[in-house]
Design a protein around this nucleic acid. Structure first.
Length: 420
RNA sequence: GCGGCAGUAGCUCAAUGGCGGAGCAUCGGAUUGUGGUUCCGAGGGUUGCGGGUUCAAAUCCCGUCUGUCGCCCCA
């Protein structure tokens, strides 16, 4: 029989990693609540069209990375590859723009992209997603960076870089596109194959290329950052001023671009040198045109996503505080009847129940108790019942004592001994 | 989607063309009721899967799946 295992790039999350996930979620809740964000649960499956229209039909995500299928009704559906699209849909569908001046929302959950798995990249992965609708002032851009900073501090993560840039608005980007194409008209031959493709599809991404030759060419190239319109320039300057005001050090990376079509003005990435090739573990930016493009009122937007798996990889190993527990060892039928009464009473007192389901030898039960790292073993045998006692053994030493066979008394002793 | 490396017991790994093993872990036993250290023993495998070469394949070849690292791209 062939063993069934998870799909490629899909994983079980358990043990220490799951603990980190829980800690990440808890730390995130703390600061998102503090800054007025509320949580939304979004569907994992949406109409394919939603992602095509928001993320952009020329992006890799939409072109080749979505889990897409046709359902029984003939609709094309896709597993969400990111959360912003769903957030925008929800913002419009739920009419939030009409009931509040600004909207701060967040969500956490699995995302799906059909990519080749590698370190820190899976087909099912988890993101925390944060979005703000209705604020165009750069103070909110800075507040998000501030929130990220507090969140990472809470998780004891200190080795990271905050890289920021501005990709401008529609106007400055359009005029820069002309400048860029003009520059590359004479130097196309020096670019790698991938960059020639980028030149057609998304010229800004050329600045992202890791090829040495391309880096040399783009070093001479004009930068979008230097062609920003006055409004975008002012917006970015204020953003930098506010972030500095929050006491946070950022690095302006004029070559930083994003792979999704909807970004405008501020973009940022939080990167770590401890992650291998996939070094960005948080990223986001502003998308001031997206809501209107999706059929809503003109509404500024900004948000970011946290790659939970990547963040978990950066977290220091936690030394788990051991929980003190008692094992109930039992020999004989009469003792077993008493054990059940004792278990019932212990359970309602919040004492964890560890015991053997099989009638094993005391030696085997002791071994099991040791294996479970129990600090105490309560030995309950027919001999004890006969004498109206129970034996309580301290597993850290070798001491044991006899207690009267009285449930209330046993419970009070256990509660006393098990408290840290 | 493309490339490099890898896949043997639950885990870490030996066996390099000639009988598939060890350590750890699990389970049992060592005066019928006392764990950890020690000693003895047991279970556990279609060597990822499929094909090929060979008298003979874990080992060589081809394919495939999965993992891993990188590319593209992204959190």
């Amino acid at each position: 029989m062939e063993k069934i295992r998870t799909l490629r790039g899909f994983r079980d999350i358990l043990g220490e990693e799951l603990g980190k996930f829980r800690d990440i979620e808890e730390a995130f809740r703390k600061y998102s609540t503090r800054l007025g964000f509320r949580q939304i649960e979004l569907p994992i499956l949406e109409k394919t069209e939603l992602f095509v229209r928001t993320i952009g039909d020329a992006t890799d995500i939409v072109e080749k990375e979505m889990f897409t299928f046709i359902d029984a009704g003939g609709d094309s559906l896709s597993m969400r590859p990111e959360a912003t699209a769903g957030m925008v849909r929800s913002y419009l569908q739920e009419g939030l723009y009409a009931t509040e001046r600004l909207t701060k929302v967040c969500t956490i959950g699995p995302m799906f992209r059909h990519e080749r798995p590698q370190k820190g990249r899976y087909r099912e992965f988890h993101q925390i997603d944060v979005e703000v609708f209705g604020v165009k002032e750069p103070l909110i851009d800075a507040e998000l960076i501030f929130m990220i900073r507090m969140f990472l501090d809470e998780l004891d993560i200190s080795r990271y870089h905050i890289e920021v840039n501005s990709v401008g608005c529609k106007t400055c980007r359009e005029s820069f596109r002309g400048i860029l194409l003009e520059f590359f008209a004479t130097r196309k031959s020096e670019l790698c194959e991938d960059c020639l493709r980028r030149l057609e599809k998304n010229p800004l991404r050329i600045f992202d290329c890791k090829n040495q030759q391309c880096i040399r060419v783009t070093a001479d190239s004009p930068l979008l950052f230097n062609s920003l319109c006055d409004e975008c320039r002012d917006h970015f300057d204020l953003f930098q001023k506010y972030v500095t005001g929050f006491g946070i050090k950022i690095e302006v990376n004029k070559r930083l671009v994003r792979g999704l079509d909807y970004y405008t003005k501020t973009v940022f990435e939080i990167t770590s040198d401890d992650l291998g090739a996939q070094k960005a573990f948080m990223a986001g930016g502003r998308y001031d045109d997206l809501v209107e493009e999706m059929g809503g009122p003109a509404t500024a937007g900004i948000g970011f996503a946290v790659g939970v798996e990547r963040l978990a990889m950066l977290m220091p190993q936690k030394t788990e505080e051991p929980v003190r527990e008692c094992f109930f060892a039992c020999i004989g039928d009469r003792a077993h009847d008493y054990l059940i009464l004792l278990l019932k009473a212990c359970s309602s007192e919040g004492i964890p129940l560890k015991y053997s389901y099989e009638a094993k030898s005391l030696k085997a039960q002791m071994r099991y108790a040791d294996n479970l790292k129990c600090d105490l073993v309560l030995i309950l045998g027919d001999d004890e019942i006969e004498k109206n006692i129970v034996t309580l053994r301290d597993m850290t030493g070798k001491n044991q004592e006899e207690l009267p066979l009285n449930i209330d008394h046993i419970i009070s002793v256990l509660k006393n001994r098990l408290s840290p």
